[in-house]
Design a protein around this nucleic acid. Structure first.
Lengths: 211, 211
DNA sequence: GTCTATAACTCGATAGAC
DNA sequence: GTCTATCGAGTTATAGAC
């Protein structure tokens, strides 16, 4: 929800740049990435279809700004969930799965955007920066689960597996319609799945270490 | 790769209907669901932009036919992988994760289509029929892993978790570019992840059953 | 900074000739 | 069955007035 770029000073119209981002996110939530267009965002913000191009060079830049804001919000959610989960490393990492699932159920289209190929993420610095923040946070939590002598590669691997499997669980679900019922139950199941996987993973590591 | 609908007899031009489906799949592989259009498929098949409408009432019908064909192929791949994995139920189910990952790396856009909200899957009988075949096959494999007295709901739950987490692992990966290197390694890791999860899951079940 | 107006495109889908 | 031709809608992006 923070404004990641330079809101130098108050314009007389209000901060249109920020308004465009928030309306873009709202539009994404309603229509999905496919339904996103600069023109629609402009109408929503109450300005002409040309106005956005004063703040963003092209469609992708606006889309990227929305993705960066969404990624930042997601990271905050995950970090917060880990903090509330208590001291046990497995509890903390597993808790992020529940928070991620909850976020996915409520901001489905936002997640689709974050991982969308439409957005040339690699070339959008803002997006990359926020993605790094997310992975850094996840790496720290994962590292605490593994033995102290675990390599960086093994840590990154487990962090990716945790994130990607959780993402799959949370996003493949809404088969029929949009209104997600029993959010608590679905999120709780995500936590159990993550915990089951970590149990099996650590058991295998210990098994190989001392046969 | 089978023709799921009625190719009554050989037309003088060749089977344009089948041609449109195969070109549609090829287009999807190159441009993704967003880049799909009836006009482009027509150009690829060497016919005019109006010709497809003789075989499919609208865009969604063509898209649905492509999705059904892709789902059928995916199901065959999973069933085949389980057969080759030997008699152990855990081996058989885990093997489908490897096959699914391999399929995802090679037909990424196809998977995106199968789960795409753009396609009103619920209203397309061909798609629903093939989706059922996939879930039925997966349910049978999952049922063999669980105790004999496991409920249908528990079986369906585990089957969904297995499928969705595997899907996430396989599809979230290609972060940078399209050419997937080390396909064998990535698929093997998927099998390990599935096995780790099943280990933890079964351990938790046994733990609660006999404390 | 935001407006109006428009250029240049692509898309889905239809009509009617052959 | 496939063609040509076209309509209407919607898109990105730019030009120039204010």
């Amino acid at each position: 929800m923070s404004s990641p770029t330079t809101p130098r000073r108050g314009y007389h119209h209000g901060d249109l740049r920020a308004r465009l981002i928030s309306e873009g996110i709202a539009l994404l939530a309603e229509t999905g990435v496919a339904g996103f267009s600069v023109a629609k965002v402009a109408v929503r913000a109450g300005v002409s279809s040309a106005a956005p191009y004063r703040h963003f060079p092209d469609r992708e830049a606006l889309l990227g700004a929305c993705a960066a804001a969404l990624t930042a919000a997601l990271t905050d959610v995950l970090v917060r969930a880990a903090e509330l989960a208590g001291p046990d490393p497995v509890d903390r990492l597993a808790a992020t799965a529940g928070a991620y699932t909850r976020y996915a159920l409520e901001h489905r289209a936002g997640l689709d955007l974050i991982y969308s190929p439409d957005l040339a993420a690699a070339h959008r610095p803002v997006v990359v920066e926020q993605s790094r923040r997310l992975m850094d946070a996840l790496m720290a939590l994962t590292s605490a689960v593994l033995p102290e002598d675990a390599s960086w590669a093994d840590t990154a691997d487990l962090a990716y597996v945790h994130l990607s499997t959780t993402h799959g669980y949370a996003t493949l679900l809404p088969r029929d319609g949009r209104p997600p019922r029993d959010v608590d139950g679905i999120a709780a199941r995500a936590v159990t799945v993550a915990r089951d996987h970590l149990t099996g993973h650590l058991l295998r590591l210990r098994g190989h270490g001392a046969p």
